[in-house]
Structures are given as structure tokens and as C-alpha cells.
Amino acid sequence: MAQNGAGRFADVLAKHEAQILEDWVADQRRAGGGRSLGRLSEAQMREEAAEFLRLLRQAVQQQAAAGAGGETDTDGPGWDAVREFLAGLSRSRARQGFSPTETAAFVFSLKQALFAHLAREAGGDADVLFAEVWQATTLLDQLGLYTTTVFQKSREEVIARQQEELMELSTPVVKLWDGILAVPLIGTLDSARTQVVMESLLQAIVDTGSAIAIIDITGVPTVDTLVSQHLLKTVAAARLMGAECIISGIRPQIAQTIVHLGVDLSQVSTKASLADAFLLALQKTGRGITRGAGAGVTSGAGPAA
């Protein structure tokens, strides 16, 4: 019976391919209600539907010819072309802004047109019809879900790539002056990033022989106990190597949070802006800034007002 069903399913697809396509496109037009179609021309949709139907027919015929029976396994090599087409479709739909549901619905919507033709072919035989419908529905479900899997996979690839890029661009150590380094931190500090920041900062301290490092946290959105603990760890490690850290870029809200959390930053010099921190660093290395040729304002003594 199953053998019979598989063969019949292929026959129906082959015999009524054009009519099924017409019905299917009409169904989709109705279901879309013009909403989805706005993003996709009807000609394009028809082209995609025809292509899918053609590949589906070839795969099913191949399977029937091989005598694989009613077992439908879309992971098999005979389905490579169909899977490839669906993967491409899923990606292009995702780019056009379709939701994964809409993409899967494209495959599922074939059921109505297909079942109608299966029923007509089966005549009144309920058993035969049931077997055929069951096989067709299993098949289409698998293919529909496959588009969702591909959608998700491509999203995950994007996320993984972005994370990698974030890691790479997040830890520049810049030399502000001879003996003064700066680390502008951007984004939330977690353990992994702190490790990277700490390592590159300490290595830069060794390489340049800098005695002062400014950690600028203007780009850190929130500071909680964990983040401040990570900051203090970095400061402590730099101190162990003989370099002093200044933390700058503390925004008013963050200053409030730090005090509310009871984080003790008294061992660390803190400044509101990178400019103030730089000035402090210059003072500590026995330098100052003068304006013009000698007659200018010296910022040698006293903290900035």
C-alpha cells in the first residue's frame, strides 16, 4: 500500500504539475491578502513556486523509482536539490524581511492544492487517500521546518560573527604620551573581555615601559558590582607590575551607582573625563601643559577646577 502510495503521489505531481501550480499560486495570493505580496512580485513568487514544484517532483519520482517506499526521509541525497533551493529561498526571504513563519507557510500552503488533486485521483478510496495524504504531509512538514532551521542557522552565524568582531575591536591600547597608556573601554565588561583587556594592557605596559595607564569607561553602559570587581582586578594587576591606573569617564549616574553599591574605589585615582585623567598623568610624570611660548597658563600645580 505504501509502495503504491509513493508511486501514486509522484504520478499525481507529474500529471497535474501545471494545475497544482496554478491552484497553489492562487491560494497564496488569497492567504497573503496582498500583505506579503507587496514585498514580492507575483511573477517572482510564481517562478519560485514552479521551481520548487519541479524539484519536489524530481525528488519524489526518483524515490519512487528507487522503490524507497512510503518512508520519506528528506535528509537523503536524493533531496539535495530541494534542500538547496529551500535554503536559498529562506535566506533571500529573510533578507527581504519575511518572518520565518511566512517562509514556512510558503511550503505549507502547497498542501491545500496538492491534497485536492490527490483526493480527485484516489476516487472514493479512503484508505489510499489517507496513505497518500499522510506521506505528502510528512514530506511537506519536514521541508517547511527545514526553511526555519536554515533561517535560524543563518541568524546564529550572524551573531557568532558579530561577537567575534566585537571581541577584536573592543580592546585597543593606545599610547597617549611617552609613559602614558590609555584603554578606552566600550561595551559591557564580562569576565572574558576583562581577561582580554587585562592581558593586552599588561603586555602593552611591558612593551612600552609605561608607568601610568588610564582606563576610560565612558563607553561602558552600566557598572555593577561584577564590572567594578573586574575593573579593580585590572587595576591591581597593573599595580603589581609597577604601573598606576587612573579610571576616567565616570558618568554622574555611574558615580551614584558605585556609591550605592558600596564599591570601594578609594585606592584608585578617578576622574570625570579623559582630559582630567591625562592632566593628572602628566603631573605624575613631572610634566605640564603650557599655552603659547612660555607666557601661557601652566597647569603644574593643583587639581583642575
Partner: peptide
């Protein structure tokens, strides 16, 4: 204490030994 390697500094901090009483410098000269 001078010339501590970065890896050593990180290890000590992770062990919770921030050595608060110790003065440090980058190299023998400093």
C-alpha cells in the same frame, strides 16, 4: 618588587593576592 610578568600579575590577582603593602615598579632602574 620590580619586573613582574603580566602572566604572574594576572595569576596573583586571580588568587586574590593583590599584595596591598608592596611597592612595585616596572624595572630595576625605576
Amino acid at each position: 618588587v620590580v619586573g613582574m610578568q603580566p602572566a604572574v600579575a594576572i595569576t596573583l590577582v586571580e588568587l586574590g593576592l593583590t599584595l596591598p603593602g608592596i611597592r612595585t615598579a616596572l624595572n630595576v632602574e625605576k
